[in-house]
């Protein structure tokens, strides 16, 4: 089972999930992301799940948790690339991924991150 690559581009971390994660590798990814944030001080985190064919209650919760943890470290998270089948299934399952910023694709996600992190910048300056 391969590992998920975490890329640092500018002030953002990009995490394209390209493999089916089992529970332990998903937890490891969460730790790796937090380590990266600590090390790099990234302002934005973009998680791309366009290659993920299913999101069950475990992975869904883990993603929401990761965003909350990143937020506590001062990093904004945007989840991008959820397929329509995945979305329908998540809502069927009863999992509402509240308080999570989402976008359709990486491009929109980066634009959203820019506006999210831009705001915190302005605040800091004042």
């Amino acid at each position: 089972m391969g590992e998920v690559t975490i890329l640092k581009i500018g002030k953002n971390l990009i995490v394209p999930i390209q493999i089916e994660l089992h529970d332990q590798s998903a937890r490891k990814l969460q730790r790796d992301i937090l380590n990266y944030i600590e090390k790099t001080g990234a302002q934005g985190l973009l998680i791309d799940v366009s290659a993920v064919s299913i999101i069950d209650s475990f992975l869904g919760r883990l993603l929401v948790e990761t965003a909350k943890m990143a937020k506590l470290m001062g990093t904004e998270t945007v989840l991008v690339g959820m397929k329509k089948e995945v979305v329908l299934t998540l809502i069927h399952l009863g999992l509402t991924m509240k308080n999570l910023h989402t976008a359709l694709n990486i491009e929109d996600g980066l634009a959203l991150l820019k506006s999210l992190t831009g705001r915190t910048y302005e605040k800091n300056r004042k």
């Binding site: 299913i54 069950d56 475990f58 397929k83 089948e85 329908l88 399952l93």
Partner: peptide, 17 residues
């Protein structure tokens, strides 16, 4: 259909877990 596949594979994932 892809939707049925996604639904059932998700259910399988929950039950196997």
């Amino acid at each position: 259909s892809v939707l049925a596949q996604t639904r059932i594979v998700t259910a399988v994932s929950e039950l196997a877990r």
